[in-house]
C-alpha cells in the first residue's frame, strides 16, 4: 500500500522535477561555470580558468586586459534602489485598495480581480510604448501642462530613472496586489473589533494588529515585485534611456552587444547572490517583526 502510494506520488512529481532539473538547474550551472572562463574573441568561451570577470567588478583586475570599474556595482546598487522604490510605491498604492476590495460583495470582488489581471492580456512592449507616448516631451502630460500654463517648457520625464520606476510600478502592481489581497482577505475582522474593544485607537489597531496580521502578504508581494524589478531590462530599455540604465541592461549588453559571455555570466551570478542575500535578510526580519511589531 505504502509502496503504491509513493510510486504514484513519484509519477506525479517527476515531470516537474525533470523539467526544472534540465531547464532551471542546467542553465544556472552553465552560467556559474561560464562566469569563471575566459571570453572568446568573437563571443563564446575559451575553457581556461579566469577570475578577472569578477575582478572587473570587485577591484582585482590586472589593468592591462581587464580594467576595474566601480560603475558595475554602482549600477547594481542603483538597480536595487529603484526596485526598492518600486516595491514601496506598489505597496502604498495596493494596500488600501485591498481593504476596499475585501469589503465588496463576492461578485464585485471577482470583477475587480478580472480588472487587475486585465493588463496581462496585452503585450508588455505595447503597453510600455504607450507610456512612452504619455511621458515624452510632446506627450499627453507635457502637452496638457503646457496648455494649462503650469510649465513653459516640457518636463524631462522620459529616459529618466523616474520613468523606469513609474513603468515598473505599473507592470508590477498586480503581482503586489494578489498576495497582499490574500492576506487582507483572510484577516479576521473580529480581531479589529477586539482591539478597539480593548481600548486601542484606530492607528494603534493598525500598527499592532492589522499590519502584523497582514505582514506575510506584504512580505510575499515585496519579494515577488523586488526580484524581477532588480534584473529587469525591458522596461529600462524602453523608458530609461542612458540615465535609467539598470543592471539587467548591462547583462543583456554583455551577451548581445559586447559578446563577453563570461563577464555577463559573472554579473548575473553577483546579482543573484546579492538579491538572494537581501531577500533572506528581509524575510527573516519580517518573520521576527511579525511577532513584535508595535511592541514597546
Amino acid at each position: 500500500m505504502m509502496r503504491r502510494q509513493s510510486l504514484f506520488l513519484a509519477s506525479l512529481l517527476s515531470p516537474v522535477t525533470i523539467y526544472l532539473g534540465i531547464f532551471f538547474i542546467g542553465p544556472l550551472a552553465i552560467i556559474a561555470v561560464f562566469s569563471l572562463l575566459e571570453p572568446g574573441l568573437y563571443g563564446g568561451v575559451v575553457w581556461n580558468f579566469y577570475h578577472w570577470n569578477y575582478g572587473r567588478m570587485f577591484g582585482w583586475a590586472d589593468g592591462v586586459i581587464e580594467y576595474y570599474e566601480p560603475i558595475y556595482l554602482k549600477i547594481l546598487w542603483r538597480s536595487m534602489m529603484m526596485a526598492m522604490f518600486t516595491v514601496i510605491a506598489c505597496l502604498i498604492f495596493v494596500y488600501p485598495v485591498t481593504f476596499w476590495v475585501s469589503h465588496l460583495s463576492q461578485k464585485r470582488q471577482m470583477f475587480f480581480m478580472f480588472l487587475i489581471t486585465l493588463p496581462f492580456f496585452t503585450s508588455l512592449i505595447v503597453r510600455l510604448y504607450a507610456w512612452l507616448m504619455i511621458l515624452k516631451p510632446s506627450g499627453i502630460i507635457n502637452d496638457a501642462l503646457l496648455w494649462i500654463g503650469i510649465i513653459d517648457q516640457p518636463l524631462d520625464m522620459i529616459f529618466t530613472r523616474f520613468a523606469v520606476v513609474l513603468g515598473m510600478v505599473y507592470v508590477m502592481i498586480p503581482f503586489m496586489f494578489l498576495p497582499v489581497y490574500a492576506s487582507v482577505e483572510r484577516l479576521d475582522r473580529s480581531l479589529i473589533e477586539a482591539s478597539s474593544d480593548l481600548g486601542a485607537r484606530g492607528w494603534q489597531t493598525f500598527l499592532k494588529v492589522i499590519l502584523p496580521q497582514t505582514l506575510p502578504g506584504i512580505a510575499g508581494g515585496s519579494v515577488i515585485v523586488f526580484i524581477p524589478s532588480v534584473g529587469n531590462f525591458v522596461i529600462p530599455d524602453v523608458l530609461g534611456g542612458a540615465k535609467g540604465l539598470m543592471i539587467g541592461n548591462l547583462v543583456e549588453q554583455q551577451f548581445l552587444d559586447a559578446r563577453n559571455w563570461p563577464f555577463g555570466a559573472a554579473l548575473s551570478m553577483v546579482i543573484m547572490t546579492v538579491v538572494l542575500t537581501v531577500m533572506l535578510i528581509y524575510a527573516l526580519k519580517i518573520m521576527r517583526a511579525g511577532q513584535n511589531v508595535g511592541a514597546s
Binding site: 473580529s190 480581531l191 473589533e193 477586539a194 478597539s196 474593544d197 481600548g199 496580521q213 511579525g290 511589531v293
Partner: peptide
C-alpha cells in the same frame, strides 16, 4: 475603544502574532 465594557468573542479573537 472608549467604552467601559469589554467583550469575549465567540471566536475568542486572540491576536495570533
Amino acid at each position: 475603544f472608549r467604552r467601559p465594557v469589554n467583550t469575549v468573542f465567540q471566536s475568542y479573537a486572540l491576536f495570533s502574532h
